Simulated assay, not measured.
Amino acid sequence: MEKLKEYIYHLLGQKIELKKLSDNILNKLPFLFRNSYEFYSTRISNHELIFLVLDKEDTFNPQQLRKQLEIIRNVFNKPVVVIAEDITTVNRKRLIDYKISFISPGKQMFLTELLVDFQDFNKKEDFRKNIKLLPSAQLIVLYHILHREDDLSKYTFKELADKFQYTQMGITKAVNDLKRMGLIDVIGTKEKSIVFENDVPKLWKQAEDLFVDPILKAVYIDKKPEKLLRSNTTALEEYTDMNPGLQDCFAIERNRFYQLKKEKQFTNLNEENGTYALEVWKYNPEIIAKGITKKNNVDPLSLYLSLKDGFIDERTDMALDQIIKKYIW
C-alpha cells in the first residue's frame, strides 16, 4: 500500500492515510465481497472514499464488478475506488466506459466521482508541477504525433535512447513517465518497446494539460551560434498565415547553451535586449523539427506550447489555432 500512497502523493500532492475497515463494518456486506476483496477508507480533498483492493486482475471482470460496486456503494454510501496492481488495456477501457473509478499504482488514475475537484486542483501551483510530463517524455509524444510514419513501437529502449539522444536511464525514466500517465503501454519481455494507446486527436486531448513549456529561459545576444532553429513568432510564418515578428528569435538545447556559455562563445549575453533573442530549451528542438520544417524552424507543436500561455495578441492566438487544426485534427 506504500506504493499506492506514493503514487497519489506524486500526482495530487496529498498524503493520505489508509484505514482498514473493521469486521463490524464489513459484516454489512455479502460474504462473497468480504472474502474476495480488501477494503480501506481514506480521504482525498475532503472526500471520504472506500478503496476496494483486488489481489489479482483475473479475479474480476468489469461488467461483474460494476454490479458488485453498486451494492457496495449503497451499503457504505460513499464513492468506491478499485485498486489493482495490473490492469490490461482492454479492462482499463471497460472500467472507464463504465465510469468505474480505479487506481493502478504507477500507471494510471481514473477517479470519475472527483472529476470536479481534480479540475480545481489545477489552480494550485504545486499540483500543476506534480502532473507535468518530463521534457524527455514530452519529446517522445510530440515526435510520435508529427512523425507518424516512424513507428516507435519498432524501437527497443536502447534504440529509443540513441534516437532521442538520452542515456538508457534517461529514456527509461521518460518511458515510465509516459506509462504512469496512461499514454503508452510497454510490450515485450527481454527487448521492451512502447505502444501509444490512442490515435493522435485523443492522445493530444489526453496529454495537452500534461505538457510543459519547452523554454527553460530566454536571453539576448548580439551574435548567434551557427545551425540554430528559428523559434517564437519568428517561426510562425512557416506553419500559419502570420508574418514573422520583428525580433529574430532562435532556440538552443540547454546543454549546448551552457557549454557555449562556458566557452564564452556568446557576444553580449544578457537578459534584457540584443540583436537576437535566444530561447534555452529543455529538450533538443532539432530532433522533432528534422523532416518537418523546410525553413529551419522549430516544430509546430513545440512552438504552440511555447506561446500558448504567454501574452499574445489576437493574430497570434488565431495562428496557434491554425497549428492545432493542421497538425492534430
Rank of each mutant, 00 (worst) to 15 (best):
Q165G: 01
N77H: 04
L21T: 08
N243T: 15
L216S: 10
I83W: 04
D317E: 15
F51N: 06
S45I: 15
T316P: 02
T59G: 11
K179P: 00
R315N: 13
E314W: 05
D126N: 12
L114N: 02
L146K: 06
N243A: 12
A218G: 12
R43P: 01
N297E: 10
N176R: 12
Y258P: 01
Q138E: 13
I50W: 08
K294R: 10
K15G: 10
T89C: 11
K93R: 14
Y143R: 03
Q259S: 07
L216A: 05
L301M: 06
K217W: 00
I312M: 09
D177R: 00
E125F: 13
Y166L: 15
K227C: 06
P135N: 11
P30G: 05
S231Q: 10
L111K: 00
N77S: 13
L229T: 04
D126F: 15
K290A: 11
N284L: 10
D120I: 14
E238P: 01
K192G: 00
K217D: 05
L111P: 00
K290R: 14
T156Y: 04
L11V: 13
D150Q: 05
A207T: 06
Q322P: 03
T189I: 11
D58L: 05
D241C: 06
N35G: 00
V82G: 02
T167I: 08
I323F: 09
N46S: 13
A319E: 02
L236T: 01
L4R: 03
G310D: 11
L11W: 09
N77C: 09
N296K: 11
E226T: 08
S101V: 05
C249Y: 08
R254A: 08
L12H: 04
P79L: 01
F127T: 08
D151V: 09
I131S: 01
V175D: 00
K93M: 03
